[in-house]
């Protein structure tokens, strides 16, 4: 394995991406509580792992089939903040779906980001198909797909991993394990300690890593991506993360999450830890960190203004396009 230690410059870029995702996420919650957007589903607590995976990819070259919490990943693959918010506001310029899908159902073709669905797990066989096509044509692009641990109970997850194992597909399946499927805790979802324990059953490599630790996650993700690119097949990469928020803007987690557990969540927040770690390593100065944070907030402000002022889609967009044209 090549030396995968990130440079100081790269570490600063990683921190910047995590902060951008967090600030944008926070703004979405505010906009929802103000009644300005109809829905939000959050990636808070997942950012370190998502940034790590994103930086392990050849962004713009590799393919990403994400799920709805992957805000940091889609930003990392080049989706502008304003484009995310155009989706939240349901505006015509929303590149994911032109205002057709609910917010956070990302699609960003310029960054090779495929369309997120609401029925969970459907992206897994599709990602296997993306990887199969890549393998059949002898391409070198790796497919990264993400899924929550709750969705690993879906049949599509198992079916896709069977393909991945049998055909040694160039794929990384990232399971973002935040220990809750809306309200159902992990112990009622699976009788194993780690999702990666399942890997052997499919004949793929399984790895679990502390997804709150960006550096550890990056090493694991980089190995998985490099292995996939070199013909070594699929890795089932479980990143253990924390869901710092309710499931979505429409959920109240106080009903099912013990107060003590909720209070302890703050200590799990990966961002303050990352900030302190990078400053201690000398990869980031206090001043540089603050600059990154201020710049991210300005970017959010500008994106917010732009998206809120943007026009709605024309009514005709409700009706189509349903079918593609006949050009073969």
């Amino acid at each position: 394995m090549s030396d995968t230690t990130p440079s100081a410059e790269m570490l600063a870029d990683m921190y910047a991406l995590a902060v951008r995702a967090r600030k944008l996420d926070e703004r979405c919650w505010i906009l929802h509580r103000q009644g300005k957007i109809g829905f939000h589903i959050s990636g808070m607590g997942h950012e370190a792992a998502q940034v790590a995976v994103t930086f392990a990819m050849r962004r713009g070259h590799d393919l990403l089939h994400p799920y709805y919490r992957d805000l940091a990943m889609v930003l990392g693959c080049g989706m502008p903040m304003a484009d995310v918010l155009l989706g939240s506001f349901g505006r015509a310029g929303d590149p994911s779906s032109g205002g057709r899908q609910m917010p956070n159902h990302y699609c960003y073709k310029p960054g090779n980001v495929f369309s997120v669905s609401s029925p969970v797990g459907t992206q897994l066989p599709q990602a296997a198909g993306l990887a199969l096509a890549e393998q059949l044509r002898g391409g070198d692009r790796v497919v990264v797909t993400c899924i929550g641990e709750g969705s690993t109970s879906e049949g599509d997850f198992h079916e896709a991993l069977i393909w991945a194992g049998v055909r040694k597909l160039p794929m990384v399946v990232v399971v973002e394990n935040n220990e809750y499927a809306i309200s159902v805790p992990m112990k009622l979802q699976m009788a194993i300690e780690r999702v990666s324990d399942r890997a052997g059953g499919y004949g793929v490599r399984g790895v679990s890593v502390d997804g709150l630790d960006l550096l550890a996650s990056y090493q694991a993700a980089r190995e998985a991506v490099d292995l996939a690119r070199s013909g070594g097949g699929t890795t089932l990469l479980e990143v253990r993360v924390a869901r710092l928020t309710p499931h979505s803007s429409d959920d109240n987690d106080s009903v099912y999450r013990p107060a003590a557990e909720k209070a302890a969540l703050k200590l799990k927040d990966p961002l303050p830890k990352l900030r302190a770690q990078l400053i201690a390593m000398g990869a980031l100065s206090e001043v540089a960190a603050r600059e990154i944070e201020e710049r991210a907030l300005s970017e959010v402000d500008a994106a917010h203004r732009q998206a809120e002022a943007a026009p709605y889609p024309p009514e005709a967009w409700a009706l189509g396009p349903v079918f593609a044209g006949e050009e073969a």
Binding site: L63, H65, F114, T122, L124, P125, Q126, A127, A128, G129, L130, A131, L132, A133, E134, L136, R137, D156, E159, A160, W163
Partner: peptide, 11 residues
């Protein structure tokens, strides 16, 4: 599902 992915990736 695999067919959908392959179709979206050029096949």
């Amino acid at each position: 599902g695999v067919g959908i992915g392959a179709a979206m990736n050029g096949l």
